[in-house]
Design a protein around this nucleic acid. Structure first.
Lengths: 157, 157
DNA sequence: CCAAACGGTTGTATGGTTGAACCATGTTCG
DNA sequence: CGAACATGGTTCAACCATACAACCGTTTGG
């Protein structure tokens, strides 16, 4: 019934992903020296505050081993500190350092600039509609669909 | 002026990418055995017909070395044939095999199913608006912004 | 008290992307 | 015409991203 719409949507998103340069994991077009995953991670830590590694894992939708390594890299940059919480000795408590916070802010600014440039190419009248649409899409993806997809429903990327 | 909108948009897209599972290059949630890049490539070949490797490179926004290896993998699967065109002996002419066409069709169906599930989570009235918004976004990304970003304007992923 | 569950770490394998060096083929121009 | 240059591809080395499995220390529950 909605097959045509679905087809259109998938090709749109595919096109957007490629056009926007959502490949090249290491390369940062704006000259920022931060790999994509690390950027996601510190953005999450900056916006939410200190987190357990498992919580970060859930937020980034990654495996714990991946997160462990990722955090190691961030520590190497001096952006995050691994600590212990009194309650449970197993937990690793992640906290951004001042440098980490600064880096997160800088990245947020760079991203905002790029998205602002993107918005410049969209008629002003349409912008709120685009943002609303994105919101809907995110809600749809984070809702039941994400769960069923995670357990192996359909779709390949 | 649009900073708030830009901020909202960037976080929306980031959230969508993660929620939708646009990581894991190899893993295919629907059980399809096709890595993401290869899926993009055969989708492009299927939708556009035979292409030169350079043309495919432009469409996928990848480096020629990446495309070369990618095509090699597709050949290994027997999905694409490398040929020569009479005009210029340097060009590699790419054509999907029957198997490749079948694989592309199967992937398209799987993607359509997943996107249909996504659309199910969006009120029917909103769906056309969402698709239109995506269209605008893609146009904005494929236009001047993409160029300026590629030459180092802003944005980090 | 011991077994099962939980949170993390490390090892191994796969996949993706780039940039540089290189080769073969075309093109331009003195 | 032939030398310089441009173009399309390939190969190689380096790096990043992710998952799964095996393992260790801690906590919890019977």
């Amino acid at each position: 019934m909605f097959e045509e719409e679905a087809l259109a949507l998938q090709s749109q998103i595919g096109a957007f992903v490629r056009a926007f340069g959502l490949h090249q994991p290491d390369r940062t077009p704006c000259g920022e020296v931060v790999p994509v995953s690390e950027a996601h991670a510190i953005a999450e830590l900056a916006s939410h505050g200190a987190l357990t590694q498992t919580e970060l894992m859930a937020r980034l939708r990654l495996e714990k081993s991946t997160v462990s390594r990722l955090v190691g890299q961030l520590m190497g940059r001096g952006w995050v500190q691994r600590g212990k919480r009194p309650g449970d000795a197993r937990l690793v408590w992640l906290e951004l350092s001042d440098d980490g916070r600064a880096a997160a802010a800088q990245l947020a600014a760079a991203r905002a600039a790029r998205f602002a440039a993107l918005l410049d190419n969209i008629p002003a009248q349409q912008r709120p509609a685009v943002i609303d649409a994105l919101s809907l899409l995110v809600q749809a993806a984070t809702g039941p669909v994400a769960v069923s997809a995670a357990s192996g429903a359909a779709g390949h990327e």
